[in-house]
Design a protein around this nucleic acid. Sequence first.
RNA 1: UCCUCGGUAGCUCAGUCGGUAGAGCGGGUGACUGUUAAUCACUAGGUCGUAGGUUCGAGUCCUACCCGAGGAGCCA
Length: 437
Amino acid sequence: MHDLVRIDTLPSRVGETVRIGGWVTHLRSKGSICFAVVRDGSAVVQCVATRADAGDDVFATACGLTVETSVIVSGTVRSDARSPGGVELGVATVEVVGRSVDYPIAPKEHGVGFLQEQRHLWVRSSRQHAALRIRHEVEAAIMEFLHADGFVRFDTPILTPCAAEGTSNLFATEYFDLGEAYLAQTGQLYVEAGMMAFGRVYCFGPTFRAEKSKTRRHLTEFWMVEPEAAFVDHAGNLEIQERMVSHVVARCLERRRADLELLGRDLSALERVQPPFPRITYDEALEIVRAHAPDDGSVPPLTWGEDLGAPHEVLISDRFDRPVFVERYPAAVKAFYMQPDPARPEVALCADLLAPGFGEIVGGSQRIHDEALLRQRIEEHGLPVDAYQWYLDLRRYGSVPHSGFGLGIERTVLWISGLPHVREAIAFPRMLYRIYP
RNA sequence: UCCUCGGUAGCUCAGUCGGUAGAGCGGGUGACUGUUAAUCACUAGGUCGUAGGUUCGAGUCCUACCCGAGGAGCCA
């Protein structure tokens, strides 16, 4: 099988005789000619078999194929305007590798419940295939950007001994004789330890939230990248974020344009994603909500001190042509470790990045670097100080101002690809009412 | 946890006033040498989510429950 060639190389092999291996996605036959579209993961190609060219036996095999049968096909590559993609394979031989009987997904509409039940097969479908290739590109582009910017990948634990903020949203499991352990809902605290060692680090992996959220933006298991940098203040933090997000979008436009087009994404909207991103304060966000909320009550009014809800984020982000930072939220609604604004201590030096028409894809802040203030915040939040001794240690031995952020992979993929629901931005989504397959 | 909608063939759905279960797609068989989700003909395929109730008679009406979808709350 070492001689098999990838289908995406066929346009440069016109005239050659080649062998390809893949899966039949579609079949059409008409008398003594039949067409089989084959997918190998790199691309698809139409294979054409005629009784005259292939002979009775090969032709009968080709006509007897079924959807998702795996095959090795040999033949001659030729260009033909009638073929989708302009290139096709004139079949000489067909070898069935694995049969496929009664494949459940047909080229027609299905309900999402059925498709999710068939997720292990649904990932073969063209739209899902495109979405997951975009996810791959997003992940690769993030690591490419951070590597080039001097960040060291610093992977953080999945099993953790305590909650960053309460245990109600955590998945718990027994950990031998040491009591309960929890699946990490962030790598944030650990990545701060790495930052003090390496200057710039990031973690990249799954996080878990036992929230009973049932919306198109929520998963119980999702992936996050969390960069953390020493000697970077709030303003510098936003600058890293806008450069990274712009890089990711540019890479997708460069390398996954066909997938974006297949999904029907408006590419001109993505072309506009260039730094700098607009910055508005929480106070200005409240003004926008007050002035532009529709009369139908779909966007509830907000008073100062309340966090923005999903409808507010969409309302605000829709008014900008690229992602927008909303900064300086009331400290009371944000995490305990966020640095207060020295000019206005009731707000935190934090920002959420809202993508147009979608909502939050990034949350970040400058962190408290003073031990006394951090200890005070831990106590104010009613958290167990003993459990945070190691975290306080980071402020006892050469503390420096530092900042970081977390970017949600599935939400970013959803926004870039224009998909309707996060379940399509990950291969096997984990949701409130679904853990199979 | 709450609100809304739904569950009938493998899939997507229709089913009128309560009176013998329907279509399209998919599957099977056959025809056709350029199809693009091909087309045409024929054909197989049903415990109407579950359990009760009303009725001479329930896919249809009532009650409870189960399951699915969308949204809200929640969500550094």
